[in-house]
Structures are given as structure tokens and as C-alpha cells.
């Protein structure tokens, strides 16, 4: 793995945009726009509650694409795992987000901001387990090779 560079400014700007976007969704229709919840509830097909979710998700994909093209530094992508491992990771992320009721945006951004005890403890839990997982994969399993 390459040595990552400390880049607090794009991180802060990106964070302000992410928080601004979830705040704008709240201002527009009063919804807490945690990504995993927005996506998962598309499949419930509750009348009148699906179109805004689809619009938000399409916007997210378009916004990512636009940024990658218009601001090339944002297109930096270093693969962290093989494709089969990515499939397992995706399954666990989707399962865990819906079992636990939130992800990095719902529990993290919105939950912490709203002083939600489950949001804060959910974030602490998944961060802690993610730190531990990376330690096991990159230092124990990889035998310190990385």
C-alpha cells in the first residue's frame, strides 16, 4: 500500500458538501437522508415515498461522475481488495446497515448531529470494528507485509 497523503482541506470541503446535502434534504422534505436507508426503502415501494429516493440516488451517482470528470484529483481510486472480497464486503455493508439501522451518513453524520444515542454508539461500533478488521487483514493476515 502506498503512503497516503494528509489532505485535510479537500476532506473538510467534501464533508461540508455532504453535510450540506443531507441538510438540504431535511429542509426540502424533512427526511433524514442516510444513504443506506434512502436506498433500502426504495424497495418497500411505499406510495409517495419512492420518487424522491430514486431522484436522490440518481443525483448521487451523477454527482460522483461529474466530480470525477471535472475535478480529476477526486477520481483517485486505489483498490483495497479483490473483486470476490468486494462482493463479501458489499453484502456485509448492506446487511449490517439495515440490521443496525444506519450507515456512515445516517448513524454518522445525521445521528451525531442530532445527538442520537443509537447514532453515536452505532458509529463508535462500526468505526471500532472497521479499525480492528483493517488491523487483522493488513497486519496479522498479511503478516506485516503491507
Amino acid at each position: 500500500m502506498t503512503i497516503a497523503e494528509f489532505e485535510p482541506v479537500p476532506a473538510l470541503v467534501g464533508g461540508l458538501l455532504i453535510g450540506g446535502a443531507t441538510g438540504l434534504a431535511l429542509v426540502l422534505n424533512g427526511k433524514i437522508a442516510g444513504v443506506s436507508g434512502v436506498v433500502a426503502r426504495i424497495f418497500r415501494r411505499v406510495s409517495g415515498d419512492t420518487a424522491w429516493r430514486v431522484a436522490f440516488v440518481v443525483g448521487l451517482v451523477v454527482g460522483g461522475a461529474a466530480s470525477f470528470v471535472l475535478y480529476p484529483p477526486s477520481a483517485s481510486f486505489e483498490r483495497a481488495a479483490s473483486l470476490p472480497v468486494m462482493a463479501v464486503a458489499g453484502l456485509l455493508v448492506g446487511l449490517g446497515a439495515r440490521v443496525g439501522g444506519g450507515c456512515t451518513s445516517g448513524h454518522g453524520v445525521c445521528g451525531i448531529s442530532r445527538g442520537s444515542t443509537p447514532g453515536i454508539l452505532g458509529t463508535v461500533t462500526f468505526m471500532g470494528v472497521a479499525f480492528l478488521t483493517v488491523f487483522v487483514i493488513h497486519h496479522l493476515v498479511a503478516g506485516g507485509a503491507s
Binding site: I18, V35, S36, V39, L60, A80, A81, V85, M86, V88, A89, G90, L91, L92, V93, G94, L95, G96, A97, R98, V99, G100, G101, C103, T104, S105, H107, L121, G122, T123, T125, F126, M127, G128, V129, A130, F131, L132, T133, V134, I137
Partner: peptide, 17 residues
């Protein structure tokens, strides 16, 4: 759920957004 999510995020380095 948060623990399962943490394992997935740590494995792939990618969360839903």
C-alpha cells in the same frame, strides 16, 4: 448490524454512498 457493517467497510474500504 453496526459490527457487520464495520467488517464490510474494513474489508472493502467502501460504504454505501
Amino acid at each position: 448490524g453496526a459490527a457487520l457493517f464495520g467488517v464490510g467497510w474494513g474489508l472493502g474500504g467502501i460504504c454505501p454512498g
